[in-house]
Nucleic acid binder design. Structure first.
Length: 204
DNA sequence: TCACTGATACTCT
DNA sequence: GAGTATCAGTGAA
């Protein structure tokens, strides 16, 4: 079942944990691609130097962050890559959750084709994980681009998140976030969450 | 398996 | 013009 607006109407930290184990669904080119969310990061604009919206900054690029919960925010980074975020909270509150890694469930053949031009059976274990164990990798695997920016995950039929059994607290690991060394004290916030012992997590 | 580094283009100052 | 919420390739063990 597709998650409702209600699910997203909470703060980013809670949503980050709640999203673990849920299933990201992408329909593209007549294919159905599904992946279990295994790693997330919270970004809270008001207090977080690592957030694009820190200190109330508001530009056209980050405008989706201020939108209502449940819309997508896809941004371009390092000249080559996309990252996919889910917006949390209410309108005009800049909170979001970065999806860092997924575990492919359905459409693996197609994702493998996109990423390596080979069938999954031809890949080594390492290559198989490499399909989606990182924020930009999962975007490539699922063909998420800037065209999917500002998409409503509750209304859309091409990009949404399905409900799945909750992950127990015991299996959620909190950790420091990644790739934000410039953010001073904010880089030490334990705002990254991942599913314990899941091989698809980008970094332990 | 791990550490290091270049690629690359979009956004804000 | 500078900086960036990253990745793939390389080389050494």
């Amino acid at each position: 079942m597709k998650l409702s607006h209600n699910f997203y109407s909470k703060d980013a930290l809670t949503l980050s944990k709640d999203l673990l184990g849920k299933v990201l669904v992408r329909k593209v080119d007549g294919q159905v691609l599904k992946g279990k969310i295994v790693e997330t990061e919270a970004y809270i604009g008001a207090i977080d130097k690592a957030s694009h919206a820190y200190g109330g900054r508001r530009t056209e690029r980050i405008e989706p962050l201020y939108g209502k919960g449940g819309i997508s925010y896809v941004y371009f980074i390092y000249g080559m890559y996309f990252c996919f975020n889910v917006i949390a909270g209410l309108k005009d509150v800049a909170e979001g959750v970065l999806i860092r890694a997924i575990e492919p469930i359905e459409g693996i053949d197609y994702m493998s084709q996109i990423r390596t031009n080979k069938k999954p059976s031809e890949l080594t274990r390492a290559q198989l994980k490499n399909i989606s164990n990182g924020p930009s990798k999962l975007c490539m695997a699922m063909k998420i681009t800037k065209a999917n920016n500002w998409e409503d995950l509750v209304e859309s039929e091409e990009l949404y998140i399905e409900d799945a059994p909750e992950i127990s607290e015991d299996n959620i690991v909190e950790s420091k976030r990644i790739g934000i060394d410039y953010a001073e004290e904010a880089k030490d916030f334990l705002w990254r969450f991942y599913i314990k012992d899941n091989p698809w997590v980008s970094k332990k």
